[in-house]
């Protein structure tokens, strides 16, 4: 866990964002930046907790509606399982596939970020990059809620 935090910090520091940039990026910009910056990440999707697509950068012909519903179902069931097993709050769900990984993570209470990687990705780095994007999504949602 410490290692991941450290990587997150490094990645965040290295990005050289102009100080305290309070302006939250749009979801589309956040996903675009994630795919631009992270060589191992091939696709990403933001959905509501109940499985509706909000923004996507998906490879090929992956249907965002279908993957949105699956993301919310996976995360909800995993969260329930971890909680009932006494493992506390779920950070993310990690699927290791022979052709690449899939991460599904909470981005605040009501949004979910799903990320697809290339085959044999750098696990710690891609997780940290995805988590950082999820944090940006949280920031975006917070700014948007404020504006309403």
């Amino acid at each position: 866990m410490d290692l991941v935090d450290e990587i997150i910090k490094k990645v965040t520091d290295a990005s050289g964002e102009g100080g305290s940039d309070s302006q939250a990026d749009s979801l589309d910009t956040i996903l675009g930046a994630l795919l631009d910056d992270a060589d191992d990440i091939l696709g990403a999707l933001v959905t509501t907790a109940d499985g509706l697509p909000k923004a996507q950068r998906l490879p090929g012909d992956l249907d965002p509606r279908r993957f949105s519903a699956m993301s919310s179902a996976l995360l909800a069931l995993s969260t329930t399982m971890a909680r009932e097993a006494g493992k506390g709050e779920t950070m993310n769900v990690l699927i290791e596939g022979k052709e690449g990984n899939t991460y599904v993570m909470h981005a605040g209470n009501n949004l979910v970020l799903t990320v697809f990687t290339k085959i044999k990705p750098n696990l710690g780095l891609t997780l940290a990059q995805a988590r950082r994007a999820a944090d940006k999504v949280v920031l975006f949602a917070r700014e948007k809620a404020k504006g309403m």
Binding site: D50, S72, A76, L77, T79, T80, E84, N109, N110
Partner: peptide, 23 residues
């Protein structure tokens, strides 16, 4: 019950606050 209820954001919201997403 093992439930997977989350906050609803679709048309369900008119009826109730949460909805089952996995099982």
């Amino acid at each position: 019950v093992v439930s997977t209820d989350v906050d609803a954001s679709d048309e369900t919201k008119a009826r109730k606050d949460t909805t089952t997403v996995a099982m």
